[in-house]
Simulated scan of single mutants.
Amino acid sequence: MTATSHLRGHPIEHNGKEWVYSDTKESTVETHTERACGYCGEHATPEGHDACLGTLPGVMNACCGHGHDNDAYVQFNDKSIARGKEAIKFMNKLRE
């Protein structure tokens, strides 16, 4: 049985040695920065942020979930973390 997951909206699998993209079998370590989001099709910003989020004020780091709301998170500068739908709600409010 192969372990599977998602990385930035792309299905990935473990080949026994490393995580690879399910479609191309390329190493995620070597190519993850070159791939656009598998959900929205946008590349990360030059700063490395999810394109749909950009830079969020008062946020240390965040992930939109790339089509998987339960994977979304926001880590605030005080190191507290919102996850899932709570994080999506907060991101949407900041982008208004």
Rank of each mutant, 00 (worst) to 15 (best):
P46E: 09
G65M: 07
K89M: 15
G67M: 03
G54L: 12
L56V: 04
N61C: 14
G54P: 03
E34M: 06
V29Y: 06
P57H: 02
A62Q: 12
T55V: 15
Q75K: 15
D78G: 12
R35P: 01
T28S: 08
T24I: 09
A82P: 02
H32N: 14
C37P: 04
K25P: 06
G65Y: 00
T24P: 02
E30N: 03
K79W: 02
V74M: 04
E30M: 06
Y39P: 09
H43L: 13
A72T: 05
T24V: 12
Y21D: 13
C63I: 00
P46I: 10
E86N: 15
T24G: 02
L56Q: 05
Y39K: 12
Y73F: 15
G84I: 02
H49L: 04
S80A: 09
C64Y: 02
K85N: 06
R35Q: 05
E30L: 11
G41Q: 12
D50Q: 07
A87I: 01
V74D: 04
N77V: 13
T55A: 08
W19A: 13
A87W: 02
E30K: 11
H66S: 09
A72S: 06
G38Y: 08
D69Y: 09
H49P: 03
A62H: 04
T55I: 13
K85T: 14
G9T: 08
I81V: 12
H32P: 03
S80V: 06
D71C: 08
E30H: 06
G9N: 12
W19R: 09
V59P: 00
R35C: 01
C37W: 04
I12V: 14
A44T: 10
H43P: 05
T24N: 03
K25L: 07
V29I: 11
K89H: 14
H43A: 04
G16V: 10
C64D: 05
G41C: 13
A62D: 01
N15G: 09
E18K: 14
G58I: 04
P57E: 05
K17S: 13
H49N: 11
H14N: 14
T28W: 00
P46Q: 13
A72F: 00
E26V: 12
I88D: 01
L53C: 02
G9F: 03
S80W: 02
T33D: 09
N15S: 15
T31W: 04
C63A: 10
V20I: 11
H10L: 11
G16P: 01
G48T: 10
E47V: 07
E86F: 05
C37K: 12
N15M: 13
T28L: 01
Y39L: 13
C40M: 09
G38C: 07
P11G: 06
P11N: 04
E47G: 07
N61K: 12
A82H: 08
K79F: 05
K89I: 08
I12R: 10
A72I: 00
K89Y: 06
V74Q: 07
G41T: 14
C64R: 05
V74R: 08
A36W: 00
Y21E: 15
T45M: 00
K79R: 14
T28F: 00
T31M: 00
A72H: 02
R83N: 05
V29C: 12
A87G: 12
K85S: 09
K79N: 06
K85L: 11
C37R: 13
N92G: 02
M60S: 15
E42R: 11
I88M: 03
N77A: 06
W19H: 06
L53T: 01
E18H: 04
A82V: 05
Y39T: 10
N92F: 00
H66W: 08
H10W: 12
